[in-house]
Nucleic acid binder design. Structure first.
Lengths: 111, 111
DNA sequence: CCAACATATGAATATATGTTCATATGTATA
DNA sequence: TATACATATGAACATATATTCATATGTTGG
């Protein structure tokens, strides 16, 4: 890593670095991260998400759209209601990794 | 996970969720993620970071301050120059995990 | 078809945030 | 001490973004 032989890898990084920041930007909002936190426990419909977070359904819908276009969550329609779930295990991993960092920095918080 | 027995864990999550979004917010800027990308290869001084990114030294300094107060980078002073490096291995992990997600989503980009 | 419901979308507003410019701090060298 | 250099900081401006309100789309049941 870091030697100039690795030109291909460097290309990938440069090309994807902007996308990477965009990805983290999606995680970087308290409403969205709370939505992700809820979905860690399984799928949930818009109504219940909004209810859990004590927020406007519209606001949640807007945020879900952002999460959806970032490929972080996936909708499943059943009649009138739409259930959302985390798209893949990377999302959980990134979430958990961040949480570990926080806990590590704050000192161990476990009780 | 998700059952109401896990009150302690829930407490932790709720308390740390805002901090978590703040953490990702720091990753969620293209300048800062490029700085982190550079520091993946080892420590580097402000001058060279700015040079590498073709940016104002002031802008870099501002962003380094944000990275510093988030605990993502660490300064080492040597005479006039200040060298920055990634603070701990969590930072690299989060970076790599995100990159994997991007590459996974884009389809395999290798070569 | 109509009413009730769940979700989505668009426009508007208020707030947050990144970069620039000017200037300050701190360090080495003449 | 004076000058040059590396980095840091503060204010200002321009842009991005989250939430709200109003409205639209789509679905179920009467």
């Amino acid at each position: 890593m870091g030697n100039d032989n690795c030109v291909i890898k460097k290309e990938i990084d440069i090309r994807n670095l902007y996308d990477l920041s965009e990805l983290f930007k999606v995680f970087g909002d308290s409403t969205r991260i709370r939505i992700i936190g809820l979905l860690m426990d399984g799928e949930m419909c818009v109504y219940h998400i909004a209810d859990n977070l004590n927020m406007n359904h519209s606001a949640i819908s807007h945020q879900l759209r952002i999460l959806r276009s970032a490929g972080l969550v996936r909708p499943r329609k059943d009649g009138k209601t739409v259930y959302y779930s985390l798209d893949d295990e990377h999302v959980e991993m990134i979430f958990k990794m961040g949480l570990e960092h926080i806990i590590h920095k704050n000192g161990v918080v476990e009780n």
